[in-house]
């Protein structure tokens, strides 16, 4: 097995966000997070429930791009549940879910924006909108996949779609009791909020990345521990799963070509 490349290291770092989740609906948005969810289940978190991103919960480890119900492609897919959007919202509010979303902007408190750039009332750029971010983030565990840190980490976001720790603290104990931003993974490093004031902390640096590179791509004050571990390398079995089973055509690499 040839050495792990940066996309594979990021994939494992994102999969690690699901460690310990047990029997939970893992709901990643976009091909890269989907690959991470499938890797986590195939490698070390076997009880995760995963969706096909349409309306079914599926078992088995299938390649990215597989469409359930297409007889040409559905070998190995076993449907174990039905999750139409209405049920997904019920699941969100019941809290048995861990979502991975993207961000156009994110600040040191974890306030995320992918709704619009500029003044929301007449934005310079209308982006995705709020989508499900407000309800996701306030109701259950959230992680973020951010493939371009320097462009996304900001001093302050133009508007908040997914609230961070400062916003949630202002709600009082009851309003924010189910809020948890577990992990942020970028192309440079992994981050969490395990600090006394719940601001962003450098958790691990990907192999080959210097802490100075991380700081150069971070426009805000970042908590940096005295000893910063290196993000772990994929195991041989994980590399096999990524390259031969989950993503044989290299869809995951698209976000690293910029």
């Amino acid at each position: 097995m040839s050495a792990a490349t940066i996309d594979e290291i990021c994939l494992v770092a994102l999969a690690e966000a699901f460690r310990g989740d047990g029997e939970l609906l893992c709901h990643p948005m976009g091909p890269f997070p989907v690959a991470a969810g499938r890797l986590a289940r195939a490698s070390f978190e076997p009880d995760l429930m995963l969706t096909d991103t349409i309306a079914y919960a599926v078992t088995g480890t299938v390649p990215l791009g597989t469409i359930v119900g297409d007889p040409a492609e559905d070998e190995g897919i076993v449907v174990e549940g039905y999750l139409p959007f209405r049920t997904v919202f019920d699941q969100i509010w019941a809290g048995r879910r861990h979502v991975v979303m993207g961000a156009s902007q994110i600040d040191r408190h974890g306030n995320q924006n992918f709704a619009a750039i500029g003044d929301y009332r007449r934005p310079k750029a209308q982006l995705l909108g709020l989508r499900g971010a407000p309800g996701n983030v306030i109701n259950h565990t959230t992680s973020y996949w951010i493939p371009n840190q320097a462009r996304t980490f900001v001093e302050s976001v133009d508007m908040v779609s997914g609230p961070g720790y400062d916003r949630v603290a202002a709600l009082g104990e009851s309003g924010g009791r189910f809020h948890e931003i577990r992990r942020i993974v970028t192309e440079l490093a992994a981050y969490d909020f395990e600090t006394p004031d719940r601001t962003m902390r450098l958790r691990s640096v990907h192999p080959g990345v210097a802490i100075d590179d991380v700081l150069a791509a971070t426009p805000f004050e970042l908590a940096v521990p005295d000893e910063v571990p290196s993000s772990r390398l994929p195991t041989d079995e994980e590399l096999r799963l990524i390259r031969e089973v989950i993503d044989p055509t290299g869809i995951r690499q698209a976000e690293f070509r910029s």
Binding site: F85, R86, F89, I92, W93, L130, R131, G132, A133, P134, G135, V137, I138, N139, V160, P163, R167, V168, A170, L171, G175, G176, F178, H179
Partner: peptide, 26 residues
């Protein structure tokens, strides 16, 4: 929020003025 929108439809269906939710707090 996508889920909150569902509650706006549900409230109209059930002829109540609103449905409460955490979605949107913060």
């Amino acid at each position: 929020d996508e889920g909150a929108f569902y509650l706006g439809l549900l409230a109209a269906t059930h002829r109540v003025p609103f449905y409460p939710t955490r979605a949107g707090l913060g």
